[in-house]
Structure formats: C-alpha cells, structure tokens
Write a protein that binds this DNA or RNA. Structure first.
Lengths: 222, 222
DNA sequence: TCTCTTCTGGGTATATATACCTAGAGGAAA
DNA sequence: TTTCCTCTAGGTATATATACCCAGAAGAGA
C-alpha cells in the first residue's frame, strides 16, 4: 500500500455481479474513492488480499465458500488495518451483534439509500463506526447491555461437527438420514442438533434454519 | 403513455434502495432507456401503475406486501402491455416455471453481469423473451417437457388459508400456537399443513420453509 | 497428571409432526 | 338440485424431534 495514495481504496465482495457493479457505479460518483477490485466469493477475497489490501472492504453477508462473518474474522486477523463495512439485507439483532464481535466497522442495510452508503464510507474513513439507521434505534440498547454483561457471542463457539449437522438440518433431513450421511448414530445427530438449538436459543429446526440462513451460516439449499 | 415516446421506459421494483439505485445507474449508461420510477413494495407498485405504465417492469421476487409472483399475475392481468423482467437471486427450477406461468417475459439472476441486464432489456424490447445463462442450460429441457405434459403449476392453487398457515409455518410455530393465532383447532392446522406438503411434494416443514422462502411465497421471518 | 472440550452414543420420556381415515357446513358453479 | 371445493375438526397410528439423564474415548493444554 502506498502511504501517499490519494484515493481511499475500496474492495467489493458480493456474489451478485449486478449488485457489485451497481455499488461500484454509486461509489464512482465520488472522485475521492476508488474501487480497486471486486470479488464474488470468499476464496477470491482471500486471494485478492494476499496481493492488495484496500482501505475498506465492503462485504456482503451471504457469500459462497466463506460466510460473511467468517470472512470478517479472517480478514481482521490477517489484515487488521483493513476496515470492513458489512452489507446485509437482514435486520437482525443477533447477526448485528455477531458482526460487531467479529470486528466489523460498519453495518449497512441494502434497504438504505445510496446517500447512506457514502455516509457510511465517510464515517469509517474518519475512523468512526457506522450503523444503519434501520437498526440503530431498535437495537442500540440491546447491544450495549449485551456488551456490559460481557456475554460471549455463541457464534464463535460452533464446532466443526455442529456446522456439518447444521448444514444438513437446513437441507431438511431426518436424524436417521443425517446419521447415514455422516456415518454416525442418529442419537449423535440428535445430540449435536440439541446443542445447536441450545446455543442459538431456538426451539425447533424451522427456527434454527431461518436463523442460520438469515445470519449467513449456511447457504439456503437449492 | 405517449405513443411517440423516444425512450424505452422502465420501472424498478425492489425493496432494497441500494440495489434499485445501482441498477438505475447501470441503465442510465444507455441513453435509449429511461427509468421512470422506483417502488419498494407491492402496494407502491400497484399505486404507481394506476397513473403510469412503463414499457418494462424490472421486478425483484422478494418484495414485501406482495410477492413477486403475485405481482406478476396482477400486473399482467391489469396491464398486459407492460413487459416484466424478473430479477432474482435464486436458481430454482420450480420458481422459474412459476414465474413463466404467471407471465414474466424475462428472468435474470443477480449473479448475472450488467451486460446481461442490458441484453435482457434489449431482447424484451425486441419482443423476445430472455432467460439467464445461469438457468438456460440446466433447466431448458425440464421446462420444455413440463409444458409439453401440460402440467399445471401447483403455485396457482394455494388457498387463502393455506397461505396463512404457510406463513406461520415459516415462522416456526407449532400447530397448537398456530391454532391459537388463527382461532382454529390444531387439527385443522395439521390438515392445512399436510395439504401444503402434498401440493409442494415436500416431506417436512424445513423443506417446506426452504421452498417457500426460495420461491418468494413468503418473506423470510425477521 | 489433571482438566477441559469435543465427539460419540445409549436410556427414557414427552411433544410434535406426519399420514391415513371420516364427515359436516358453506359457497360457487353447472 | 347436484357437484365440487374449501374449511372445519375429530380418530388413530406411527415417525420424528426435543429434553433430560448418563458415560467413555480422544485430544489439547496447563
């Protein structure tokens, strides 16, 4: 990175080319900003960062091969100077909390206007954080109290097996079928699913699926 | 509508302002096209059409207050001259079939490039139909055979009650709770849910939820 | 070594969902 | 009227999920 760079450099990460190009167009209206790259999934993102670190990464939650949240953790660990603006379509308390814990600097909704996008970039550029007005009012109190209670996010503690089972639950399999797929007893599947329900504080698999899909833990099954 | 209009007029319907503006920017690169309006939900869409009918409606599937598919039916019924380009993030056989049955003229994915967007507009402008390259190869055969067999789409036959129950199923409620909400016996809920499973050929509620969300029957619960 | 966590899987019990069946009330259409 | 569909709701049976209990094996780390 050139320290004397005149531009504020931005990398776009979103699996939808149309949306990437649309945002690039919006950003290009501001001559002080420069989009230095676009990537469509998590692998491309990590590959890109090996050679070039932008000032700001605009990151969609629902990316293939690496969920947005995991991407935040990885990027912040390896490149702590890269700021991250999360872009999401979902209003969700838990997800916002999750994104903040992982190290995101800003949180923008796709419902927001393009003026909000530029405002978010400006605030992060100035070393501040940004929260979508769709969320700030409703959730600020919850977030603050959560931090005060020093509660650790459940998102960090999902084990490998639990992630595997979660993906199969989303696909609508029964314990027996999941056991066959993973070569495990259906009782073990039950155990992992029960842990998932407990960790996310959900009461049944439908809620679990909604939650997991909304929060980018899994890609909705096609 | 002025018959001597020099522009090809376009209306954007998507609940995400950022995406709307991004697409508007992309379209504005072509001087022959003119975006005459933007709406964020189904109510606004119907309201807008009362006064102005564009040549082309670019319509996202996951809109509040009126699902994309229902919107297609309504628009085509009242304004048969308005062409419709569906814009979706989901690759899905059944949904594509559904959209075609409802009268969509084109089917574009958000994964497609902006060049594809302009190509899609051009083809529809020329009176042809358009299908995203993401789908054309995989699904063309299925679609053709489905039409040959003259199979009727199950999507048209959902009753009002079934839609209500479907929405509650997506929210993860039990039969008892749904019965309380709708003031019905849980057994009646069971009956409607069983009909939904049968009509969509699904085996359990998780599959039903995935299917319904993917296909725009319901908005994923927040 | 001791401790902790994960992964494994069984016992037991209850709750819920799913798959069949039946059947009456009401509305719409032929 | 007759027919068809929807909505209602119950009977019965099985399948599955969920919530507790238990415990041993394996690995990581202090």
């Amino acid at each position: 990175m050139e320290s004397g760079n005149a531009y504020y450099t931005i990398l776009l990460a979103d699996d939808h080319a149309l949306i990437r190009h649309g945002i690039r167009n919006l950003i290009s209206n501001n001559p002080a900003l420069k989009v230095v790259g676009e990537v469509g999934d998590g692998e491309q993102l990590l590959e890109f960062l090996k050679t070039t670190q932008p000032d700001l990464l605009i990151l969609d939650i629902s990316m293939p091969k690496l969920t947005g949240i995991e991407a935040v953790s990885r990027v912040k660990k390896n490149y702590p100077d890269v700021k991250i603006l999360m872009l999401t379509m979902h209003k969700n308390k838990q997800y916002f909390y999750h994104a903040m814990s992982a190290g995101a600097d800003g949180y923008l909704m796709k419902e927001d206007s393009d003026e909000e996008l530029l405002l978010a970039i400006k605030r992060i550029q100035d070393g501040k954080s940004y929260l979508s007005p769709f969320l700030s009012q409703d959730f600020a109190d919850d977030v603050i109290s959560a931090y005060r209670n020093n509660r650790s996010s459940p998102f960090e503690t999902l084990t490998k097996r639990e992630r595997e089972v979660l993906n199969l639950v989303v696909e609508g399999h029964t314990s027996k079928v999941m056991g066959d797929i993973l070569c495990l007893s259906p009782r073990t599947i039950d155990h992992h699913r029960a842990n998932l329900l407990r960790k996310f504080d959900m009461k049944n698999s439908v809620d679990l699926v909604n939650f997991a899909v909304r929060n980018g833990f899994v890609t909705p099954s096609d």
